[in-house]
Nucleic acid binder design. Structure first.
Lengths: 315, 315
DNA sequence: AATTGCTGTGTTATCGGTAACAGGATAACA
DNA sequence: TGTTATCCTGTTACCGATAACACAGCAATT
């Protein structure tokens, strides 16, 4: 592997100049810069992350803290991880994965945290390096998330326009901002259309949504659409509607949320709101690196739109 | 953060001695070792991975190369990743994730490769650092995998003992060793019991197994068990049996394979062969690090037993 | 007592970068 | 022309570890 020194020799400059070309190009004459770039190209120079880390008193490591139990977690995270990892790679950063079981921090330049719940606030506040959250929150920490409210608003509108008479919202029974936002989007559009919201909150398991449909089957006239806060809930709803011999999508519609894997497990495939998880992962990585470079300066939030992906569960 | 030098001062030795205590303890007098250990404890010394990496001409990075498409992949990999990451952490190693899209290698000390197919042989042979495969193979590369043959043998035996008359094997139509091994385990036990194997190979998608059941429904008398090479296939089978009003588990049984997430999505839950993915991940990490320390010396293979996890799809 | 060998420890140089400082060249000004 | 400021580039020291070598102390050998 070529080093700074090799490049410097080839370009007939000192290695400090090469280092400057990389880190403070504005301090170097254009002429020299060209020479250096050329030498780097010819030698296929790749900076040594360890040396850089040592000199900068950095680690070139970002820790990803996953606070959710993975048994109950959707495949979801693989996409997030890929997004993060690919982006980190570009800056010679690498990733360390932490779960609740091994939070024995080693050392890192920053954190990305996901699956956070309210009670984790103290844990997160205790981290002494820049933090970016994946998932909206109200503690003022920078975050990346889907635009949950807008997402559900869009779905509600879609359902109404498809002519479903009654739109029932099945939310996730958890007191977290993302959940409230989704509900809010639904309510807003229902009000706009002069329809009465109808909301039930359930644990995020398909058996609960299935059980719910079973118990309340009598209540739901034909031409009802179940708008679910997760594909998992959607899955249970579809299962039980079929069990009850309801006809999908003519008499009953189902829309899920997330669009990661589970929507494709359902039969027919769920109409769902697909999140751009991989892009969001990349955004998390970029944001945390930026924060690292700016001594932890707040970066604000970033919301991603979801895409309504039509499956076989809506007209 | 305390450094080697800090520890050395505290223990009244040179930093070289401290380094030796860590890396070649047999070269240091017990007396001094005690002093050093004590100092390390008091200062809560953690070695600086970057410095170590630089001095050793290592990177302290292992790359995980995932060759499968993740859209079609089971959540599976999150568990693997956790296992790998936790283990690497212990040795101040971190992880970089590569997919087919970004194999532009940076630099690393070794590779763990998974989702490999035959045609990837050249790619893998081209890697210039120690490699461990997750998944059995015939190219002589060290690997970790479940004991696929034994796993299916165990399931077949179980099905027979539960009194299912006919055991139909639904394999994954792919010319890879893991697939052949699973089939082999089935055949072996069927022969042992004097039963005639009945094998179909399908693409690993639930809609194909569902379609298969639908088309062939007439052929399957009651008291048949479908032994599936994946939970995904199992899922489709369960779905279609219910569609045909077959009764599970009394008249028809289903056993899947993998035990990661999908088995719990089915209703009723699939009886499945649960793999110890996280442990296997840790084993991959250990093996690749060992290989790194032994200049790439071959490490052989390591097979993990699966656990038969009873769900509602067998008697 | 002198030589040899073995242990165990310290010294030095090095890994590949970067910050801080030093100093030469040129332009701007008195 | 001499002084000062500005711009660029090079030199030096250092980040925190490790390998290679040097060497002191002691036991075994002659």
């Amino acid at each position: 592997m070529a080093t700074l020194t090799d490049v410097a020799k080839k370009a007939n400059v000192s290695k400090m100049t090469v280092s400057r070309v990389i880190n403070h190009p504005e301090q170097v004459r254009d002429e020299l810069k060209e020479l250096v770039y050329e030498a780097m190209r010819e030698l296929n120079y790749r900076p040594n992350a360890a040396a850089k880390a040592l000199a900068n008193k950095r680690t070139q490591i970002i820790k990803l803290l996953i606070l959710e139990e993975m048994d109950t977690t959707e495949p979801y995270y693989m996409f997030l991880l890929t997004g993060i990892a690919n982006e980190l790679d570009k800056y010679a950063y690498s990733l360390q994965l932490l779960t609740r079981n091994n939070v024995q921090i080693g050392d890192s330049d920053g954190f990305i945290v996901c699956g956070m719940r309210r009670e984790d606030e103290t844990l997160i506040k205790s981290l002494d390096k820049p933090v970016v959250l994946f998932g909206q929150n109200e503690m003022g920490t920078d975050f990346i998330d889907s635009n949950n409210e807008e997402s559900m608003a869009k779905a509600t509108k879609y359902a109404i326009e498809k002519g479903y008479e009654k739109i029932v919202y099945l939310g996730i029974a958890i007191d977290e901002p993302f959940s409230h936002s989704r509900e809010k989007g639904y309510i807003k559009v229902m009000n706009d259309y002069g329809k009465k919201p109808c909301i039930y909150n359930l644990k995020n398991r398909s058996r609960y949504s299935a059980a719910f449909i079973k118990e309340n089957w009598g209540k739901f006239s034909e031409n009802t659409l179940f708008l679910c806060a997760s594909d998992r809930l959607g899955l249970g709803v579809v299962r039980e509607i079929k069990e009850q011999n309801g006809i999908i999508p003519e008499d009953y519609g189902v829309i899920g949320h997330d669009g990661v894997f589970l929507d494709q497990i359902a039969y027919p495939h769920l109409t769902t709101l697909k999140q751009s998880i991989t892009e969001m992962g990349a955004a998390c990585a970029r944001m945390v690196l930026k924060k690292v470079n700016e001594e932890g300066k707040a970066q604000g939030n970033q919301l991603f739109e979801t895409e309504l992906k039509r499956g076989g569960t809506t007209r």
